[in-house]
Design a protein around this nucleic acid. Sequence first.
DNA 1: TTGAAAGCGCTAACAT
DNA 2: ATGTTAGCGCTTTCAA
Lengths: 344, 344
Amino acid sequence: MQAENGKEMSTAMVKIKDVANEAGVSIASVSRVLTGNRQVSAGTRTAVLAAAAKLGYRTNYLASALRSQSTQTVGMVIPRIANPYFIALVQIVEESAQAQGFELFLCDSADDTETERRRVRALLSRQVDGIVIIPCDETASAAVVREVLEEVPVVAVDREIRGVPMDQIAIDNQAGILAVMDHLRHTERRRLGFIGARQTTSTARERLEAYRQHAAEPGFDRSSAARVLLGDFTVEWGEAAVDDLLANGPLPDGIVCGNDLIAAGVIRRLRSRGIVVPRDIAVTGFDDIELCRFVEPAITTVHQPLREIGAEGARKLFARIAGEGGFPTRTRIIPELVLRASSR
Amino acid sequence: MQAENGKEMSTAMVKIKDVANEAGVSIASVSRVLTGNRQVSAGTRTAVLAAAAKLGYRTNYLASALRSQSTQTVGMVIPRIANPYFIALVQIVEESAQAQGFELFLCDSADDTETERRRVRALLSRQVDGIVIIPCDETASAAVVREVLEEVPVVAVDREIRGVPMDQIAIDNQAGILAVMDHLRHTERRRLGFIGARQTTSTARERLEAYRQHAAEPGFDRSSAARVLLGDFTVEWGEAAVDDLLANGPLPDGIVCGNDLIAAGVIRRLRSRGIVVPRDIAVTGFDDIELCRFVEPAITTVHQPLREIGAEGARKLFARIAGEGGFPTRTRIIPELVLRASSR
DNA sequence: TTGAAAGCGCTAACAT
DNA sequence: ATGTTAGCGCTTTCAA
């Protein structure tokens, strides 16, 4: 006892040998009972279980994993842990992992390629059995992912990686933007603008490309296709972009935003400038995050089927881990438009 | 090559022996260079580093940790990964961990004592060097934490655990509620009500206790102290609680909410019932999450100094891990009121 | 400063 | 069905 320095006496770690002694069997029998991969007699099982419970034994993960060459762990690397959108995806993957008896090791790449590389290497160093990645850069992330693929299966989720033959699952961004713009056309919006993010991710790129393509179609004013502002996927950029628009000529009557955060910023700034949404100008988002229903007016947006995306990503990963072969696949889920007050 | 089934040939894992061969030294020397705990000649160092880089060697974490009895990993158990408030705290702790050269293993207890116990055991099984916990139940979590304390240091953050002598850090909830109620008193609100959460956490309990105490003071209508509704810390409960209030007699002119999510729900439902906030009724929140500034009207709330709480929690943990003794401490940070439109 | 060898705690192969 | 033992890949004595 070392009561005087406030430290409790540490219980010596219980090892498999202690359980074996207590149960009166060999350590191999203990291992067999606990891992369950082998036949054991009922008597041995009972004795081992009782001894383990009595001593409070917990298998040493490090030793077990080192020996069995299996960590039963998968890693997930996301660009920003503070982004609720990514966290929602994490939750689905975590559920699937748990259901398969795997643990999930979550890492934040801080939307930085170098950090992403370090995180991925740390995961490989921990001998994870597979990795789910939301890459932070459409092209720069390719190199590190290619490296990983030499060792364990990887699935890219939500964002695409170019030029790497691998399993991928994401939403169909083009279809989403098309739905938004069809809606704006039918509600007589003619002069559109697009406020999105710089083209470092497939998400940003595909949404912009779809906008440009459809804005040039009949039904929209000719100025629309060129009215494009690119920053990042944040509320702050949405606000700044509105100032930009206001300073440069007459406002459009519809703004297509690259995601909901931008849309929230756009709406807040427009309101503070006395411009009425949706009467003067319609605003749309993308992703359908919770915030949409709290903003006034509530944001019309494209719903991300996160559950499907996450579940399918996990399914692909665990299939590879289980040794299933076949060519890598790229899946796109077609999203639905959610009409709310900001565009009516 | 097995090109026909789409599988790349797996690179054999590079081991320390391979590096030793390549560099023409013993494996011990490689280890010494890579861990940096020992003296090595410049020549050996260069040769080892070059060989390691050439072969793309990464230390096997499992083997290294098993042998050295140090994982350089801490665990963090939070009640809900989907709650941005907890995630903000995680980020701060993660920063501190990285700065100390530790990895953080994040776990979700799903606000359930049994899951919490399983998660904690999994962490111990992985030989983490310490644990930061946001306990899901003020009393029930005590048992599992007491267990853990036998093996590694634990720090409770944000919520208190009763009856366990351990390091703790949280906000001073009583002071926060007092600030809210002083403000309401000065703005002539007389008939108050409290919408909070059931008393399973110190957070919920302390905020209610403070409300009850101050509501009975002069300046408030006598009905105030008894006008209390308890559910959980969600938007949905805030909405339901308003229906409850409306069905039972005249409305108060001020509602103190247990947190911001409840306040957001309260405001949304009041508005949909045609009741004007803050003219007819003032509403306040607690925590100062991002949402507060998006709700219309923006929510008056108590700001949580998350950075300070997280950093101090991490500091305490790493001090214990480093072997610092001394009695456990309980720290409370006094928060500030943030005045916004919902109470003016 | 370096190499040889022991051993971290466990699982799996090999006995019986 | 069970026990004995090798060895997972590394770090750390112990010798030299």
